[in-house]
Amino acid sequence: MRKKLPLLLFSLPALLPLLLFVLYPFLEVVRFSTWDWSGLSEPRPVGLKNYQTLFQDPAFWKSLLVTLGFMLLALPPFLALSLVLAVVLDGLPYERLAKSLLFLPGLVTLGGATLSWYTLFTPEYGALAQFLPIPPWDREGFWALLMVVLFTLWRHLGYGVLVASARLKAIPKTLLEAAYVDGAGPLEAFRYVVLPLMRPAVAFLLVVGTILSLQSYAAVFLLTRGGPYGATRVLGYYLYEAGFENFRLGYAAAITVVLLVLTLLFAYAQLRLLRHGDGEA
């Protein structure tokens, strides 16, 4: 204990904000989830009734399916484009400029970005609708969900490219040179040398992308408001409706806990899968 005490003392400046701003709010949300509370009325303890109601609510299951569909549409392109663009841009004269342009959408305020997209891509009167066939994403559910996916990729792809590029720079060039000397082409070198060594970056982007997908809310709120006909009502937006439109804060807290548990389960399963692949390699 004497040896560990200095380590504990030095870690306190980092642990205290974590306990104060992460653990304590989470415990409070868990406590709120056992209340029947509108935010204005007196809280009434109901135990696990909110969870029972949640798992019997068809709207919750529909929102969960929409969220999983959003993740399946957004996550594979995010990973693939991040890796491919990092490899393609590596070593080019305009590499830094291209990465800066890719990262720039993430620096634009979310409200301004969604307003720009809405102005450009509205099927009836959008600026690009005069020149391109814009699908009716404001009336058809699939196109609305695809629009949210494209907007999310546009905002976060630059971050994925930077993470993949940082890992790519750490791969020794001698390994690639040895592969080329042994007769490997560019595709073989990427498949058997670069891709296995990119596994830590892939794992990180997979977990980050899953968290972004499961907890997506802002783009849906600003672009589609969960429509049309609930086709883009992801769990984050369903939580907002329950808590701040229907004033069921206890029920919304239960949704928050379930969403956090799902996020942790998905992230843990992905990390286990990737570590298992490392063991086999």
Rank of each mutant, 00 (worst) to 15 (best):
E28A: 13
K62I: 01
S82N: 08
Q56Y: 00
L23M: 10
Q56G: 15
G69R: 15
G69W: 09
E42C: 00
M71D: 01
L73M: 15
L65Y: 11
F60W: 13
E28N: 14
Q56E: 12
Y51I: 03
E42H: 10
T67S: 14
V30C: 15
F60E: 04
L64F: 15
P76T: 04
T34P: 01
F78M: 14
Q52I: 11
L73P: 05
F60M: 07
W37I: 05
Q56K: 07
T34L: 11
T67A: 03
L73A: 15
S82C: 10
V84D: 03
S41L: 04
L81C: 12
L65G: 14
D57W: 06
F78R: 09
P45F: 08
F26G: 01
V30W: 01
L81D: 05
T34K: 06
V29C: 11
L54F: 08
P25I: 03
L68E: 02
W37E: 01
L68K: 03
D57S: 07
F55G: 02
L72G: 11
S41D: 15
T53N: 13
L64T: 10
L27P: 03
V30N: 01
L65V: 08
L89D: 05
Y24W: 12
L48Y: 08
K49V: 06
V87Y: 03
V46F: 05
V30E: 04
S38L: 06
L20S: 10
V22H: 11
L89M: 08
D90E: 14
L73Q: 06
S41N: 14
G39S: 09
P76D: 10
P76W: 09
R31H: 12
L40V: 14
V22A: 15
F60G: 00
S33R: 08
G69M: 11
D57G: 02
Y24N: 02
L83I: 15
K49N: 08
L54V: 01
K62D: 07
V46H: 03
S63G: 06
L23Q: 04
G47A: 09
G91K: 13
S38P: 00
P77D: 13
V88W: 15
